[in-house]
Amino acid sequence: MAKNRFSSGDGPSQRQLRVGELIRRTLSDVLMRGDVHDPDLNRISITVGEVRTSPDLKVATAYVAPLGGTLGGQDAQEMLLALRRHQGELRHLVSKALTLKYTPALRFRLDETFDRLDETRRMFSDETVQRDIARGHDDEDDLE
């Protein structure tokens, strides 16, 4: 296999990123319009945070979360089950908007980014961490 001289091999290629973003936008539109006729799926507002594609563009993993719901809640599990139940139909609807030779198989995972962001905010608001941050700034002033 030839080595790509434009890629360092660390992370996704530009093509993977472009295709992932195109699938993310298309999947969001399909879910927003309610093109899949399933009451379980249509009653939940779904956020598609990111789509990562495999290097050969055969598999696309969509990171999804229920809008306003919690990831550990019943809504998230119902949403994942409904999305997985309609993988084929969603793939077909997404393929209509893509101009790729092959449409990637869709996989769905819960997007935990927002929960991690809340945890990070909580950690930074802790008074011990605030004290350490302030102490770090005082140390920098002493160096000058």
Rank of each mutant, 00 (worst) to 15 (best):
R25S: 12
Q74G: 07
V129K: 05
S7F: 05
G68P: 05
D111A: 09
T26D: 11
P55A: 13
F108M: 07
S7L: 10
R107A: 08
V36K: 01
T61Y: 08
T120G: 09
L83P: 03
L41H: 04
L80D: 02
Q77M: 05
D111S: 10
S7G: 12
L22P: 07
R43L: 08
Y102L: 15
R43N: 09
N42S: 04
L143A: 09
H37L: 10
P66D: 01
L57N: 11
M79S: 05
D40P: 00
D115M: 08
M123L: 14
S45A: 14
D126M: 04
D132Y: 12
M123Y: 10
F108P: 01
S45F: 10
I23L: 06
M123T: 11
R15N: 11
Q14W: 08
I44S: 02
V129C: 02
L83G: 07
A62T: 05
Q87I: 02
R107W: 00
A134P: 03
K3Q: 12
L57S: 11
P104V: 08
R109S: 11
T53V: 15
L80T: 04
F124N: 08
D139R: 13
I44D: 08
R85V: 01
G49W: 08
P55N: 11
R122N: 12
D56I: 13
V48E: 06
D115P: 00
D40A: 10
G11H: 08
A2Y: 09
R52K: 15
Q77S: 08
V94I: 10
A2R: 15
T70C: 00
G49D: 15
L57H: 12
T113P: 03
F108D: 05
L27H: 03
L90H: 00
L27E: 06
V51A: 09
R131F: 08
M32T: 13
H86I: 00
E140Q: 12
D29E: 15
A60V: 06
I44C: 04
G136M: 10
S7T: 13
Q16G: 12
D141R: 13
L41W: 07
D56F: 12
Q16R: 13
D40Y: 03
A82I: 05
L80C: 06
D138S: 10
S28G: 15
L41P: 04
A105K: 15
A97V: 04
R107N: 05
P12H: 11
L80F: 07
V30N: 00
V94G: 01
F124T: 03
S45N: 06
Y102C: 08
K101T: 13
A82G: 03
F6G: 11
G88Q: 07
L98E: 12
D38V: 05
D38A: 06
S7E: 12
D142Y: 07
T26G: 04
V59E: 06
H86R: 02
D35T: 00
E89L: 00
L67P: 00
Q77E: 10
D35E: 14
R109Y: 11
L143H: 08
K3S: 14
H137F: 15
N4T: 12
V129R: 05
F108C: 03
A76C: 07
Q130V: 09
Y102K: 13
S125I: 02
F6T: 12
S45Y: 03
P39S: 10
V36T: 03
M32G: 03
L67K: 02
K96T: 01
G136F: 09
G34F: 07
R91S: 06
D132M: 12
Q74V: 13
G49K: 06
R85T: 03
L106R: 03
E140W: 08
M1Y: 09
L100W: 11
S8T: 14
